[in-house]
Design a protein around this nucleic acid. Structure first.
Lengths: 230, 230
DNA sequence: CGAAAGCGTCATGAAATCGTCATGCTGCGA
DNA sequence: TCGCAGCATGACGATTTCATGACGCTTTCG
C-alpha cells in the first residue's frame, strides 16, 4: 500500500509532524494544513486520496470543513476527536466521516484505520489486505479474535504484549527501534514519557510467554527488535 | 454467512457510508447508487444477492424501481422508509418487497433483517445460506423466534440481552469493541450518548443468565468482548 | 585492563480496567 | 394510577497490567 496522498488538517504541529513522519515512512505522500480554511484550499488543489481531519481547528472547524467539502467531493475523511464524547462521533458520522480516531491515539492504530478506509474506498488501487491470521512457524496471531496460539493452543497475552507482537509481525521481520515501538504503541502523547527500558520489559514478558515456541523475538543491538519469521 | 453482494440504492450519502462500512466489515461486498435510474442499471450489471432500497429517491423512486425490477428479477429487496406511512404503501401495493426497515434504524437491526431476508430467499440464487439457528455447545440462538435455548430449554432474555448475544454470535468469535456494540445496538441517529460502561452491565446480566452453560462470553481487555464458539 | 554502554531480569508501587452492587429513571400494562 | 421489568449510570473494590529503579551480565573500545 503506497502511493497515496494524504492531507492532514490539524493545528497541533507535533501531531502533524508525527503523522507525516510515519506515513511517509510507509511510502505515502503527506500534505498538511493548520487550519480549516487553508485545509479546504489545499484539499481542492492537491486532491488527496484521504483526509485526516481534526475537529477542533482554527478558522473553520472540522465539522464545518466536512460539511462544506462533502458537497464537492467523496474523498474519504477520517476524523480526529479530542473528546471522548459521543456527540462528536455521531455528528461526524452523520456528516460523512468514514471513520474516527480519538486522541490520544497510537500511530499503530491510526495507520490501521487509514489502511482500512483506503481499502474500503479505493476498491481498485488498494494493497494486499492485512491477513486475518499472521503465522510464523507454530506461532499464530489472530488479530480479529485478539488471540495468540502456539501450536494451536490459545495463549493469553496482555494488551500491550499483544500489540508488541502484532507490530513485530506486521513489520515483516524488519527491525523496529525502541522509539518506533514506543511511538506506535503509546501514541504521540509524550506528556507521559515512557522509558525505553519499559519496552525491554514488555519484550521480556512476551518472550517468556512464547518460550515454548523458541526464541522468535531477536534483539538487534543498538537498533531494536525484530521477529524471526523463518 | 458472508460473501454476499449487496446493492444499496439511497441518496443520503451518509447512510450509504454507514451501511457500506458495517456490511463490508462483515465481509459482504457493497455497491451503491444514489438514484433510482443508476440503481437499476447497477442492479442489472452487478447482479447483487440483495437490494437495500430507499423509497424517496431522485430520478425514479423506490416503488417505481421495485415495480420495474420485479419484472426481470426475483432478487430480494429490503425497503428503507423514512415515514411510518410509507409502510402501508409498500404493503398495500404488493410490490414484492421482502421486508422493510424504518429510519432511523440501528445497524444491528438492519443486519438482522438483511440476514433474515437472505435466509428466506435461501437456496435458489444466494451463495451461502444464512443459518437460522446459531449454535455453540449447548447454547442455541434462534434468530427467527427471538429465542435462546440452553440445553434445549428456552430461556428468556430481554431485548437488549438478546441483541448482544446475537451480535456476538454473528461476529463469529471476533472481538467486538464496546463502541461497535453501542453503534450496532443503539443506532446511528441516537442523540443521547450511552456510557460504554452500560455495555458491561448488559454483558454481566447476560452472563448471569447463561451461567449454566459456562463462561462463553470472554472479556478481551482493552478491546471488547467475544464469544467462545469451540 | 577498566570503564562505559546495551541489555535481561527481578521486585515493587502505581494505575488502568473490569465486575458488581446499588440506585433512580422510564415506559407500559394491569 | 400503581407497580414492575428493563435500562442507564455512579460508586467501589479486586484484579490485572504497567512503569520504573536496581542489579548484574556481556560486549565494546579507549
Amino acid at each position: 500500500m503506497s502511493g497515496h496522498k494524504i492531507l492532514v488538517v490539524e493545528d497541533e504541529k507535533d501531531i502533524v509532524r508525527l503523522i507525516k513522519y510515519n506515513f511517509e515512512k510507509d511510502g505515502h505522500k503527506v500534505v498538511a494544513a493548520h487550519d480549516g480554511e487553508s485545509g479546504l484550499a489545499l484539499a481542492r488543489k492537491e486532491k488527496p486520496d484521504l483526509i485526516i481531519l481534526d475537529i477542533m481547528l482554527p478558522k473553520m472547524d472540522g465539522l464545518e470543513f466536512c460539511r462544506t467539502f462533502r458537497q464537492e467531493s467523496q474523498v474519504p475523511i477520517l476524523f480526529l476527536t479530542a473528546k471522548k464524547s459521543e456527540v462528536d462521533r455521531i455528528l461526524g458520522l452523520k456528516l460523512g466521516a468514514d471513520d474516527y480516531v480519538t486522541k490520544p491515539f497510537s500511530v499503530g492504530e491510526l495507520i490501521a484505520r487509514v489502511e482500512a478506509v483506503l481499502r474500503r474506498a479505493g476498491s481498485a488501487a488498494v494493497k494486499e489486505p492485512v491477513a486475518a491470521v499472521l503465522r510464523a512457524g507454530e506461532l499464530e496471531v489472530d488479530a480479529e479474535r485478539h488471540e495468540v496460539r502456539i501450536k494451536g493452543r490459545p495463549t493469553t497475552l496482555t494488551p500491550k504484549e499483544f500489540e508488541f507482537l502484532r507490530l513485530l509481525f506486521r513489520a515483516d521481520g524488519k527491525v523496529l527501534s525502541r522509539d518506533t515501538l514506543l511511538e506506535r504503541i503509546w501514541g504521540y502523547d509524550k506528556s507521559m514519557d515512557i522509558d525505553t527500558r519499559t519496552v525491554d520489559q514488555h519484550i521480556a514478558r512476551l518472550r517468556k510467554k512464547l518460550r515454548s515456541e523458541g526464541q522468535r523475538i531477536l534483539t538487534v543491538t543498538n537498533a531494536g527488535y525484530r521477529i524471526k519469521l523463518d
